[in-house]
Amino acid sequence: MALVHTVEQPIVLVRADEDAEADADMHHRDRDLVVGLDISRPCAALLAFAFAEASRRNCRLHAVHSWKLPPVAGYGSACDPRVYAQLDLGAKANLDDALRPWREKYPAVDTLGHSSDGHPVRHLRKASGAGLLIVGRRIRRPSVGTHIGPVTHAVIHHAQVPVAVIAHE
């Protein structure tokens, strides 16, 4: 964890397990990549790494974004399917907007955007078949402790696939 917090270059973590020899033969090169995005804080470094890696591997890139119902929605309107559908459409449109310049820069990369409600770790854990799961962490220089963010922290501990952590401002 200290290394992930300290290094400002991309770092890839690979879990050692009993299937390491079988996985080494595959090199995860033919599997899709998954990148977790927070579209409220778009990150060029994260998307640049994800698209470049998908291009290099010649594989599909899944961009995953999670959203939550706003606190003002309340219980009554949260159950209203029209409000939910409108929030869902807005989140998907925002994800498409964030991906558009990268899709134009890397037209050969088949990119799928996935936006749904819920906690991001829950959605990223579904990436169990990915060749690489890519997440970001903001560069913070606290005086005490390592602060990599709760989503990145959970992904590092629970992902069963290689994880790339991209530091960004």
Rank of each mutant, 00 (worst) to 15 (best):
V14Q: 09
R29C: 11
L3S: 14
A48P: 04
A44S: 12
L69I: 03
R103M: 15
A127G: 12
V151T: 14
I166N: 14
L132W: 04
V72S: 08
V14I: 01
S40Q: 15
R41Q: 15
L89M: 01
H27D: 14
A108T: 05
T152I: 05
G36V: 01
H157M: 08
D17E: 02
F49A: 11
R103K: 15
D32W: 15
Q86V: 05
L112A: 11
D96Q: 12
L124E: 10
L3Q: 12
I156P: 00
A167Q: 11
P162D: 08
D88A: 02
G76M: 11
P120E: 01
T146L: 06
L89C: 03
V163S: 02
V64L: 06
Y84H: 08
F51R: 09
A73F: 00
L61A: 04
S40Y: 12
S40F: 14
H158C: 01
R15I: 00
A167E: 13
G36M: 00
Q160V: 00
Y75D: 10
D23R: 14
K105H: 10
H5M: 06
R56F: 00
A24Q: 13
H157E: 04
L46V: 09
P120S: 00
H65Q: 07
V4D: 01
V14T: 06
P81R: 04
A45N: 10
L99Q: 14
D96L: 03
R29D: 15
V14H: 11
R138H: 11
A127C: 02
A45E: 15
P107W: 04
D110F: 04
H114E: 14
S66I: 03
V155Q: 05
N94K: 14
A167I: 13
G149A: 06
D30I: 15
P71H: 01
N94V: 09
K92Q: 15
A127Y: 01
V144Y: 05
D17P: 00
H65A: 03
P162M: 04
